[in-house]
Structure formats: structure tokens, C-alpha cells
Simulated scan of single mutants.
Amino acid sequence: MLAPNDAAPAPLGFVTGHASATGVHREGNEDSVYTSPWSAFVADGVGGHAAGEVASATVTIRLAAMLDATEGRISGEERLRELIAVANADLALRARFDPSLDGMATTLVGLFSDGKQTFVAHTGDSRAYRLRSGKLELVTRDDSLVQELVSSGALQEADVRRHPLRSVVTHVLGGAADDARAVHLTAAPARRGDRWLLASDGLTDYVPPPVIADALTGGTAQEAAERLLAEALRYDARDNVSVVVADVVSHREAPAYSPAFGGSAAADPASSREL
């Protein structure tokens, strides 16, 4: 039995904030957002494909429904991969019953906690950043054509923003089994005080990293999310913009379980919750 001073540390979860906007250059919002005290993610329906907003909402709502059983907490990497595979399979199932949805797809970037470790799941060009001790670090690597060109030396990083094919992604969730297997999953010990940013490319394609870092610093998670959205609109983002800011805290400091949705997931008939 542990003595009082040797009690096991409290598990680490999240205090989150989120924001999502269609923007002035788009007619609809194809992004979807989910947040809870143990997990959060952003899904961006792939532009140019059928029903991107349906794809992002389908994956988001299916993942959220499965996470409900544990109030958003996951039991490890294997379980997380199972959940993503099931949500991905739902895309194929939905398209089978409605052929007009054939070809729909979505990116996914998510943050998940088992109380001790932080898992980052990622496919596509939505991104995860970590702010630690004042330093902003990009944790994910885009699954995109321009990233492959940069990695091969055929394109300079400074030219990415102006490249006409910068929106072409090389891996997404589209219903095929291989799509789920291609999801990148990394794990690291959870560290209290870290601040994470999950963002669709509507933010990162238009707002420079130093501006993102400044907007992400200080205030509550919700205040930071609102500042980031304001910066994206100030920089005239030509895409939907969705962000989640998640602060790593002792679960005793986290709010009671009450998952929240944003973007197209908030408007989907399968979800009864609003922003």
C-alpha cells in the first residue's frame, strides 16, 4: 500500500479550446472538430472530392461515439488504431449505401491520452504542434506532394506556400483498409504544462509560424483558439479554418466529461451537440 507521500501521480488529461470557421472564400465548412478531457482531433474533408464535409463528420462522430465508453480516454496504441480503422471503415459503408458519396475522404490529426502517454495520430496535411517552454515545434510531417518535393530537394521550403499543388495530399482516410494502416501514430510521455495545437491547413497554409506561436502563447486554451482563428481571417485564409488548443493538466484540473463538436460535425444530423 502506498504511503500518503508516495501516492501515484494523477493521470494527465487536457483542458481544451476550439474554433472553426467557414471563411469568406468558401460556401461550406468541410472541417470537423471534437474535444474532450482525454482526447481531441481535427478532420478536414479533402477538397475536390465528393462530400468532404460528410467524410470529416462521419469519421469524427464515429470516433466520438466509440470514445464515449471511456469518456474519451484510450487504453493504448493498439486500441487507438482499432478505433481509427473502424471510423475509416464507416466511410466505405456510408458510400455503399449512398453512391453519391463515393470518393469522399478526410485528413485527421488527433491528440489522445491514456493518462500517462500522449498519442498523436495523423494522416494528411492537418498538423499538430507542441508549445513547450516557449518553443513551438511541428510534431507531424505533412502527407503531401509538396512535402515529398521538399524532402527530395526538388522544392525549397520557402516556395511551398506559392506552389500550385500545395493542397495535394498523398494519404487520407477514404474507406480503404490501407488508409487506416497508413495513419502515423507516435507516443511520448505526457508532460504537464505542454500546450498542443491541432489545425487544419486553413491556418497553417496562410499564417506564418511566428504569428501562430505568438497567438498560441498565454491566456486560456479557448482564448488562444480564438486568437488563432482571428489571425487566419486577418491573413485572408482562402480555406476553412479549424483549430484545437489543448493544455496538458492533471485530470483533477480537467473539466467533467462533456465532449464538444465543431465545424460540419456540429451540424451533422448524427450529432445532437452544437458548438
Rank of each mutant, 00 (worst) to 15 (best):
L111A: 14
R166P: 02
A230I: 06
A188L: 07
D31H: 06
R127D: 12
E53R: 04
N88Q: 01
T170P: 10
A51G: 13
V15C: 15
A92G: 06
V150P: 15
L101C: 15
G193Y: 06
R94H: 05
S152M: 09
A65I: 02
D179T: 09
S151T: 14
V183Y: 00
T16Y: 06
G76S: 12
V120D: 13
A246M: 14
L101N: 04
L233H: 15
V109E: 08
R273G: 10
S126Y: 05
T186G: 01
V168E: 07
V86L: 15
E157M: 09
A215Q: 10
A121N: 00
H122V: 01
F41W: 07
T70L: 13
Y235M: 04
S250Q: 14
S56F: 09
S39D: 07
R161G: 09
S126G: 03
R252A: 08
L101M: 14
D268S: 07
P164S: 01
R161F: 12
E157C: 12
V15W: 14
L80E: 09
A256Q: 08
P164D: 09
F41M: 10
A224P: 10
G103R: 14
D179V: 03
R166K: 01
V183N: 00
V46P: 02
S36L: 02
S133I: 00
P208H: 13
L91E: 07
L131S: 08
A260N: 03
T70R: 10
V249R: 08
I212W: 05
L198V: 11
G218F: 15
D214Y: 09
P37G: 08
R252T: 06
V241N: 04
F97S: 10
S39I: 15
P9Q: 06
G52F: 03
T70G: 14
L155F: 11
G45E: 10
E231Q: 01
A128P: 00
L229T: 06
S113W: 04
A224T: 13
T107H: 01
A57D: 01
E27I: 04
H163T: 04
V245Y: 11
V244W: 10
S167L: 07
G13W: 07
L229H: 06
L67D: 00
R181K: 03
V248F: 07
H25I: 01
P99D: 04
N29M: 09
V169R: 04
V249E: 04
A176G: 14
A176L: 12
Y34S: 03
A180F: 09
S100W: 02
A43E: 00
L149F: 07
M1Q: 11
E226I: 09
G134E: 04
H25Y: 05
L131R: 13
R191C: 01
L138Q: 12
T118Y: 09
L275S: 15
H49V: 15
R141C: 11
G23I: 02
G175Y: 00
F261N: 00
